[in-house]
Design a binder for these strands. Sequence first.
RNA 1: GGCGACGUGGCCAAGAGGUUAAGGCGGGGGUCUGCAAAACCCCUAUUCGGCGGUUCGAAUCCGCCCGUCGCCUCCA
Length: 488
Amino acid sequence: MKVYNTRSGRKEDFAPGDPVRMYVCGVTPYSECHIGHAMSYIVFDVIRRYLEFRGYRVRHVQNFTDVDDKIIARSSQLGISAKELAEGFISQYFADMDALNIKRADIYPRATEEIPKIIEVIDGLIQKGHAYHAGGDVYFRVASFPQYGKLSHRATDEMFSTEEATGKEQPMDFALWKAAKPGEPYWESPWGLGRPGWHIECSAMSLKYLGETLDIHGGGQDLIFPHHENEIAQSEAFTEVTPFVRYWLHNGLMQLGEEKMSKSLGNLITVKEALDRYSADALRLFVLSSHYRSSLTYTEEGLAAMERGAERLRFAAHRQGGDGPTAIEVENYRQRFMEAMDDDFNTAQAIAALFDLAREINRAAEEGHSIREGQKALLELAGVLGLQLVPPQYIIEIDTYTVESKLRELSEHIREELIAAGQGGLIHELDGVESLLMKDIIDRLLALRSGLRAKKQWALADKIRAQLAKLRIILEDTPQGTNWRYRR
RNA sequence: GGCGACGUGGCCAAGAGGUUAAGGCGGGGGUCUGCAAAACCCCUAUUCGGCGGUUCGAAUCCGCCCGUCGCCUCCA
């Protein structure tokens, strides 16, 4: 396997330890997740799933930075505690990620619950001369770490930090610990009451849960500088072990219109909004159909196209086949899939293999061959990309109660039409629909429609089809009978 | 200004020196079908932003130009 390492700027052979120690930067929970977050977590979810598929054991840690300036500002605005605010958005985070079929990390440490470790690291950095305190603040002494800039490939003489500069030796030094201002949450420390700076929590938590050297550290490209650069400085200065991270992986950023989607610009589409309109599979296909290091522009047309594609994969994965001998060389597709993924997770090519397999499944089915093996492989490989390909009948959450009552209304209406059309003989098909459940009512209507079609009563048969379509229930007539499915 | 990325069919998007330039969506035609839908088959880039160069051979390497975007201390 080859993976692109931001540190070296090229693809490298992937030779991790066992288990693979993987740390992915999580969110600062002060607002809802948008599809830019979804993009990042889908990408790293697929990387993790593929590593597991390849037989690696993976220990996956992802943090919550649950105390920072924005959380504090927002919570005081709302008149609730920082903790309350963060916990609320953390719950929403999990709900969103679960809906996107993102596997949970093994551990989700929170900055506020790791204060002792954070203090230990800061204290060690002070002991070793890499940090100093100024008033109640503690800063990292960037000049003490000559390799600073090696990840983002920058020279230190161009850097400065916009953080409050009181007492800093150099403008580029950054805060490890911030003294608490009145009304802010605080913890006790050797330097007085305060809270951790932005970057230190990741160093402390990765060290605690994964050790001194990580195999994979992931995040969005916007974290390369300063966040990950600072993490390297803190971690390597503290442990004196190099490298802190063997493979730095960064995903490209989601664009909306002309600009990057971000909380600060306010130009965002939340995960909930996206999932309201499109299936998780469509969203995942959209993200994975281009390379993870490229930026991606969100468009409704793009998502709609992926929804169609997802429907095709679902159909192929669950359709009826024949009893003839298997005629699909499943191994070819597995190979193509793996070759693509082995090359720095080329999901676009992997997806192409999936679509080719789907086509071959359909072709084989129409020729009467068994397609079991092909469907099994399709579901398995799609699963590596986190695609669920649930059967088309279950694709949407439907308000069963409303649909049921509308189906009963429709049945009543059809009764009258039957009589008007002189087809009263078929009316018994609708007996008792008042007490039937949705799927049984649909079955009755389909049986009735078959009767009408047998008598070439096309007008009424088509009317039933059209009325059901209004309820997003799509009929498909085949030689074996009529199938139905939902349309999103 | 510094650093970096990108420009491939109507749209999205792989490919990074050499057989027919993946795949998806859309469009056109056909098979099947009472019609529709789905599925399948065929067609839809002799050419990869432009101009030069290297090479037997260039979307792929080099130079310049044009255009788009990202990062440069809030960010996934």
